[in-house]
Amino acid sequence: MNPTATQSQTATSPVEAIQVWLVQQLADVLSLDPATIDVTQPLTRYGLDSIDAVTLVGDLEDWLDLELPATLLWDYPTISKAATYLVDEFEVTVDASDL
């Protein structure tokens, strides 16, 4: 799957880019307004269940073309923590045009 969502904000750093992508995905999966999602709140707060958590990691793997730990969103339960971890641990770089 290619990241297709269009964003009004411009992502400046890889961490922010991943955050923006995750917010968009979460909003899609849970039918929420992206503006209501706080990246520092636990994902479960928005109703994310175990199935969503693993499929979201699956989508992330496709998007970043990386093999990620399946427990990623349990170990790093907020968007902000997960994005920081990905950048720190996997040195992920995201081309802003990908978004």
Binding site: S50, I51, V54, T55, V57, G58, A70, T71, W74
Partner: peptide, 24 residues
Amino acid sequence: STWFRDYVFLPLMGSRKSLAPAFL
């Protein structure tokens, strides 16, 4: 719960993430 998640659910499912509901 986390034991079953980490040593049953996730390994059983592997990469077949689309079948997650059944594995759950």
